[in-house]
Write a protein that binds this DNA or RNA. Structure first.
Lengths: 344, 344
DNA sequence: CCTTCCTTGGAAAGCGCTTACATTCGGCCC
DNA sequence: GGGCCGAATGTAAGCGCTTTCCAAGGAAGG
């Protein structure tokens, strides 16, 4: 196996200059049809593959979009990644994933931003919360950025209306007659690093308030956004002041809550109604009432925003708010009580 | 904001040559302590960030490891990705993800391999099935490769013993007295593109055979490895020849199967025992008996194999077979029957 | 005191592309 | 028919690093 062909080899084989090869291969103008075909053929024959690093160095562009998210192995973020990846793959762009987790994660991410800007042309930031100053610094930079789950007003963003989504979910429980409704996933101090959680909490409180109810501390439990986290949180809430319904900020947590309820001998929804958030496939299988959000579509849209900006699109910041929808299922439905008891 | 500092700027500020800066910053020998500190300080003061593309072009290495997997948004592959990412992040290496899905996915992946080899130094391939010839071509190349879920004998690999795992699961059902056991996730023709599925099927058949039982076609149903796929497959199996137990090749499918059972008015495990595969967190919450495999550890190990080879490790191909463990839970446990009926 | 060796540091040649600029060439207009 | 213009192509200067090769200078040895 001879060494890989370089552009120069293609040029001499096609009998043209390297500049022409470069233009021809990238579909740029100022190349006659005949020449282009000649070049294409030569490249084909040599199985020529441009060296991306050389191209990036010379062009000053990386053909890569970065995606920053807190974790990879949750349903939500896995779908975000999949959504972004699908769009980028379509455009033959590379995806650079940055996981922003662990202690000082955001600080380290920020520290690496200057370096990151050399390897990506654009950035999709998912649920990343930073000090205002840094958002502005980022906005001052040359790199297009789109955010998911955060709306700074400085970048194209894709979000849902967390307040409305949460108050809809709460209203549903209230309509069912519940008055002691617990919240799993955010405590009073959630705002700091998790804006979505804080907004959902607010939506819940607003809905309660409209019925002259409130959210006492003993009905709130934070915890990690996982099955185990939801279970622990639910266990905290159980006791003499136990709620008759809980709103969980993710489906994983809701499943954990149902698990805790089951262990405590409580029937869902008979003794405890449960509402989740996300509507991942298991939610439907389990009959979990939950707030559906179109995750991968949101991610794809954010990616498209970045692509559009990369293609020079000007115009004001786009702030998409995607619709959510409450999926009512068995976990809050008294009519199915018998059915639920009978099977599974 | 002035333009980004380059190595030359650091060199002149530190009063040394660019070569020395390069050596100092990368911790190479032949730099005195004093000089190194001087360089470090200069770099710090200028907030210097090496341009990765320039470095890669010059060095001929990319500092990147590729990960190829079929999808991103399933529990299993999301955890594979997370496992690999964690290891690479530790070593400050980039991860290049390649999703090999859609029609002709493998063919397109193969066609892009030469190009890919220019952007990554090593490769982790997960559940990728290719013609033998191509494995050998890959092995002939300069790039270290580790495989997950596939053992070609040509590369370091991390797998589980699918045959044993499946026959253990089957034995469990047999011990419980089941004789009509269904299989969801692989049909007789599974071998082609999904070796794991084929091996698990074989393990099941072997276990059955040891008890003088077999796996008639009407007890097998393939389907996508998802909740919906599992549900549909289960619905296929239900009917006059319905099994009293099913072994599902993923937890998602098992959840789908339980869903279908529930809709059909069948109690789990009373009317239908269900066993899954993976042991994702929801499995425990749902009391799903399942085969646990240490996904992210497997992924991390594969990544480490690649790293070791990149660091020049010679020696024979490593073929790790990770242990699996059957987690027995309610979905196959008659003792809990009453409990299951009462709650959940 | 001169040679030999080793360590540190510098000069410069790439790495394989992109692109600004220069050049050529064939019409086309007056 | 000469000059002009634009399209097609070539020339060559980088892009910002890494690395080989070489020089210098101090330590060690004779």
């Amino acid at each position: 196996m001879s060494r890989a062909a370089k552009i120069e080899d293609v040029a001499s084989r096609a009998g043209v200059s390297v500049a022409t090869v470069s233009r021809a291969l990238r579909g740029l103008p100022h190349v006659s049809q005949a020449t282009r075909e000649k070049v294409l053929r030569a490249a084909e024959e040599l199985d020529y593959r441009p060296n991306p690093h050389a191209a990036r160095l010379a062009a000053g562009r990386s053909g890569t979009v970065g995606v920053a998210l807190p974790v990879l192995n949750s349903w939500f973020y896995a779908n975000v990644l999949a959504g972004v990846e699908a769009v980028l793959a379509e455009e033959a762009l590379d995806m650079h994933v940055v996981v922003v987790d662990g202690p000082d994660a955001v600080e380290r991410f920020i520290a690496e931003l200057p370096a990151l800007s050399k390897r990506v042309d654009g950035l999709v930031l998912c649920d990343l919360f930073m000090p205002d100053q840094l958002w502005e610094d980022l906005a001052g930079g040359p790199m297009p950025v789109a955010t998911i789950g955060v709306d700074t007003g400085l970048f194209d963003s894709v979000t849902i209306d967390n307040v409305v989504a949460a108050s809809d979910a709460t209203d549903h429980l209230l309509d069912l007659g519940h008055t002691r409704i617990g919240l799993i996933g955010a405590g009073p101090e959630a705002a700091a690093d998790n804006e979505s959680a804080a907004l959902r909490r607010r939506g819940m409180i607003e809905a309660l308030r409209r019925r002259a109810l409130d959210l006492p501390p003993e009905l709130e439990a934070a915890g990690s956004f996982s099955v185990a986290g939801g279970k622990e949180a639910m266990q905290e809430l159980l006791g003499d002041t136990a709620p008759t319904a809980v709103f969980c900020l993710s489906d994983e947590m809701a499943i954990g809550a149902m698990w805790a309820a089951d262990e405590a001998g409580l029937a869902v929804p008979g003794d405890l109604a449960v509402v989740g958030f996300d509507d991942q496939p298991v939610a439907e299988a389990l009959g979990l009432t939950t707030v559906r959000q179109p995750v991968s579509i949101m991610a794809a849209r954010a990616a498209n925003f970045v692509l559009a900006r990369l293609e020079g699109e000007e115009g004001p910041v786009e702030r998409h708010v995607m619709p959510t929808q409450l999926q009512k299922r068995r976990s809050t439905d008294f009519r199915h009580l018998t059915h639920v008891h009978a099977h599974s």
